[in-house]
């Protein structure tokens, strides 16, 4: 029972990170129909910037995260402007390749600046606490709380503000949004900004329990793709739910199946989903 509780809590932590990353990915997909392969690189940049702010500049964890969110958000905007905007009418194979180009560039850049070594991010919240009979580190509690908070804020923004509503409108109907006078360019940039920001939060939160290194985004982004296919490409609740489902299946799988192959769970899940439904679960579509 103790083990199960511990694993469930682990699942909650990992799931929170996954959800944040998948949210950014699904938002961009919803608006621009781009599977942004470079999203993992944004995540990685987020980890490094927080790391640098803390170790080199020496600011507090939270301030470091804030700077990271802003910088990676702007990086996302830059990416949209320079790469994806010019490709908006190109055949679908093109934006995927361009995204891969960006991914390769950012990883090389990170390696150039920070080196290929694994870095550990110091956290002011390393202490162990007792939560409902479970012994957990405060950082893990923080991950869950901060992630849920971020999701709630995002939800409020999307539902309660005009700008947020225009993002939703555009993801539902691009031409329609354009017709009713929504500045689709601005919305696209904003979406990339949010997407980058979410990736930065996710990376900064998870870095203390994982590590920071140039390839840290690889697995996360792959899993985020699985999640948004699971939850429906472009669906916001789907991304959150999918993130937690994967988080739980992995932490339980690691304990009860095989720790070696826990990373494979996501992909097996995907293979099964797409085998049964090639257009993904909850595909929006039809003419």
């Amino acid at each position: 029972m103790e083990v199960l509780g511990q694993q469930l809590f682990n699942g909650l932590t990992i799931g929170s990170i996954y959800s944040l990353v998948a949210l950014g990915l699904t938002l961009v997909y919803g608006i621009l129909h781009i599977p942004n392969f470079a999203h993992g690189a944004l995540y990685m940049m987020g980890g490094y910037i927080t790391f640098t702010m803390m170790t080199v500049v020496g600011v507090h964890y939270w301030l470091a995260i804030f700077v990271s969110v802003v910088v990676v958000g702007l990086l996302g905007v830059l990416m949209e402007r320079i790469v994806f905007h010019p490709l908006r009418d190109a055949p679908p194979i093109h934006d995927k390749i361009a995204a891969i180009g960006v991914l390769l560039f950012l990883e090389a850049l990170a390696q150039w600046i920070w080196g290929a070594d694994y870095q550990s991010l110091p956290t002011p919240y390393g202490q162990v606490v007792n939560l409902f009979g479970l012994t957990v580190t405060l950082q893990r509690v923080l991950i869950v709380v901060a992630a849920v908070l971020a999701m709630i804020l995002l939800n409020l923004f999307l539902k309660k503000t005009f700008t947020g509503a225009s993002i939703i409108a555009m993801s539902q109907n691009r031409e329609g949004a354009h017709l009713v006078g929504i500045n689709t360019n601005k919305v696209a940039m904003l979406t990339f900004m949010i997407s980058g920001g979410l990736a930065a939060i996710a990376a900064s939160l998870s870095a203390p329990i994982n590590l920071v290194f140039p390839g840290m985004g690889h697995l996360v982004i792959l899993k985020a793709f699985v999640i948004i296919i699971l939850g429906g490409m472009g669906s916001i609740p789907g991304a959150i739910l999918g993130g937690y489902i994967l988080g739980f299946s992995e932490s339980l799988g690691a304990t009860y199946l095989s720790n070696d192959y826990k990373d494979i769970i996501a992909f097996v899940l995907l293979v099964i989903i797409l085998t049964v439904k090639p257009t993904g679960l909850f595909a929006r579509g039809g003419h």
């Binding site: 390749i97 180009g101 390769l104 560039f105 850049l109």
Partner: peptide, 14 residues
């Protein structure tokens, strides 16, 4: 080297 080839890839495809 991807500092060069990455952007080159994006540039070419655009």
């Amino acid at each position: 080297r991807m500092l060069v080839f990455g952007p080159l890839l994006a540039f070419l495809i655009i």
